[in-house]
Amino acid sequence: MNKIMLNILMIALLLPTNIFPSTKLKVVTATADLADFVRVIGMDKVEVVSLTSGNQDPHFIEPRPSMVMKVKNADMLVRLGMDLDIWMQSLIDASRNSKVSYGGVGYVDVSGKIDKLEVPTGKVDASMGDIHIFGNPHYWLDPENAKPILETILKKLCYQLPSETEYFQKNYKEYLQKLDSAIVVWKKKMEPYSGEKIVTYHNSWPYFAKRFGLSLVGFVEPKPGIPPTPSHIVSLIEKIKREKVKVIVMEPYFILKVAETIAEQSRSKVIVLSPSVGGIEGIKTYLDLFDYNINKLVESLKN
């Protein structure tokens, strides 16, 4: 009896992680933007699942057991790093998938080659709000940063499927061309507004602002992750008036009410931009994301 039990146990342990194998490389990503990047290079050779959608606050994701299965079945995991997707760690551990754990063949942290902004140099603690100790993690909102992200993903895809290296490289180059052309268009559209001052709800847009020559002069949150206080609102209203700020940029998941009150009293305007693919209906790709955000911003600044 013991022998039978032991054999059953051994068979169970040796069963492949996924009992429904697929020929495609299975990739799980932290965000929909990363999923789009994997898709444009991997095309029909990959099966991509994002653990979150663009209308979710990436700081505030509750890991679910169902997500464990997505990580467990993955050959490759792509994450933003810089602590924005720290919630992924419990999923990786619970999945017991060596391939996608830190140092595994399928573990990809795309923040490695990013020129990071706002990296704290002194002591960091919670008195400063929800500060990310490795710098501001919203780096994908600079379209130029898509290039090192894509390069990192390409490298890993080629490593995972060496026979498809040529195919991946071709897709990567084609996409880079598209991206470069789009960046030219976006920059041109934003050119007349270079130096324009904006206020955002959360400090999510420094990479975007730097790339398109905008000046971030304030935030609705007094410190990252801290809800606005009445005194902060009053001083922000004064600042918006003084600096002649035209727009307050919001993400779709933040509550509009406070920003609208500030806008009303400071004669500015609230606009909702999408921080990620899928954040607003119709934004299906990374290129769509910037098309939408740039057009929306230009339209608001023009008026």
């Binding site: 790093g81 810089m82 602590d83 830190y102 140092g103 595994g104 063949v105 573990y107 942290d109 923040s111 490695g112 080659k113 490795f134 990192t152 490298k155």
Partner: peptide, 10 residues
């Protein structure tokens, strides 16, 4: 241990 690429990851 699989070596990570020569990049600084989180």
């Amino acid at each position: 241990v699989f070596s990570q690429d020569d990049q600084e990851v989180t």
